[in-house]
Each structure stands twice: as structure tokens, then as C-alpha cells.
Write a protein that binds this DNA or RNA. Structure first.
Lengths: 102, 102
DNA sequence: CTGTATCCTGATTGATACTG
DNA sequence: CAGTATCAATCAGGATACAG
């Protein structure tokens, strides 16, 4: 089942939000940290590493002083736009249905 | 952002799989338990309860002996088909890209 | 059968300090 | 700036027993 594969790569609490952040262009580590509410540096590092291994994102180091690191979606990562798009659309269409169950 | 709302309702490890299970018709508690590999009874109960509060599913009790309980998607729950569909399609299209990063 | 209650363990996380 | 290491705290999950 393809759903399992998708969940393996995109599942968990943060990956969707990281991709959303990168959807409009490359971002630096600190930008992502500021942009994604609630995530900690440790978790962001780990998630980015996994996503790099999975070829969703590229990591680029600029040898400036101090060092800057930017992350951007690969072509493969961009292909998740369809998923984010549907999620976003569905969420907006059904906002009034949401009940705080947790 | 609609993505957050969608993630609130559908996020976590199991909801997508529960919905997938119910996509072809109502199922009983024990059927879901058998059908969804890895989930425990305790967690299934909790997830179903949350999904019921969120109006994704209906719970029907038949006063037979012993009691049987069936769960089925509401119309609202059915509307997530679009999401499952895209996830499944994406997963199948990109299966060869998946690397075991965790 | 369909759950709930309890206990217990391992994984996940946050905070902090630290490195290059 | 971009992380890593460490430790303490929290939480999620499994197993079991039990109730309706």
C-alpha cells in the first residue's frame, strides 16, 4: 500500500510543517527554527537529517563567517506539493468541523 | 493555515490507517484491531473515541449477545478520501526513492 | 465482544551547556 | 550560526486483568 510509504517519509509531527516552510524557497536552519512554532533545535536537526537521507531536501553549507546552512526542497521534495495542497484545502474547507478532542 | 487543522484531525500515527480500513465499509472493533498491524486495543479505543468526537466516524452499538460495535465513516470522514488518495498515489509513484533513515 | 484501569518500560522531548 | 551532548522529565505504548 502506497499510504504506508508516504507515511514513512512524511509521517511524524513535523515533516509536513518543514516542507511547508520550504515551499516558497530555501531557508536557513535558524529561519526554520523561528518559523515552525513549537519545534526545538534538537528535533529540527534530527528531522532535517532524516529528510536529507530521504532525498526530500538538499543541505548547502556556505563557508562564510559565521557559517550559514540553507535547506531547500529537491525536485522529489517539491513533488509533495500535491499532498500539502490537498491537506491545506481540506483543512480550510472543514475548519468549522474541528472539535478539540485532545 | 489549513494544514494545521488537517494535521490536528488526521495527525498522529494511526488515524490515516483507521480511515483507510473504513474506506470500503463499516468495520467492527475487533476487525479493525486485526486489520491494522501494530496497533493495540488501548490505542485503537482512544483513537476511535477522538475520531468520533471529531465527527469523522459514527459508532453503532448492536444489543446482540455479545455486544457488537461497528464504526463507519461519516460523510465528513468520507471527504478525507481525497487526502488518502493523494497519499497513496504519491507513495506508489515514489516507492523507489524511499530510504530507511530511521 | 468491546472496551477500561493499572502498572510498567522504553522512547521522545526540552533545557542547558558546549563545540567548530 | 548551526548544530551536538547530556541529563532530567514527560509521554506513549504494551501487557494484563477485569467490567458490562
Amino acid at each position: 500500500m502506497g499510504v504506508h510509504d508516504a507515511m514513512y517519509v512524511l509521517g511524524g509531527k513535523w515533516k509536513i510543517y518543514i516542507i511547508t516552510g520550504l515551499l516558497f524557497g530555501p531557508m536557513r536552519y535558524s529561519d526554520l527554527l523561528r518559523n515552525i512554532t513549537g519545534i526545538s533545535g534538537k528535533v529540527l536537526s534530527r528531522e532535517l537529517k532524516e529528510m536529507e537521507i530521504n532525498h526530500l531536501i538538499n543541505r548547502t553549507v556556505s563557508s562564510t563567517q559565521p557559517v550559514t546552512v540553507t535547506y531547500e526542497l529537491t525536485e522529489y521534495g517539491e513533488s509533495t506539493k500535491s499532498i500539502i495542497g490537498v491537506l491545506s484545502e481540506w483543512g480550510e474547507d472543514h475548519r468549522e468541523m474541528i472539535v478539540k478532542a485532545k
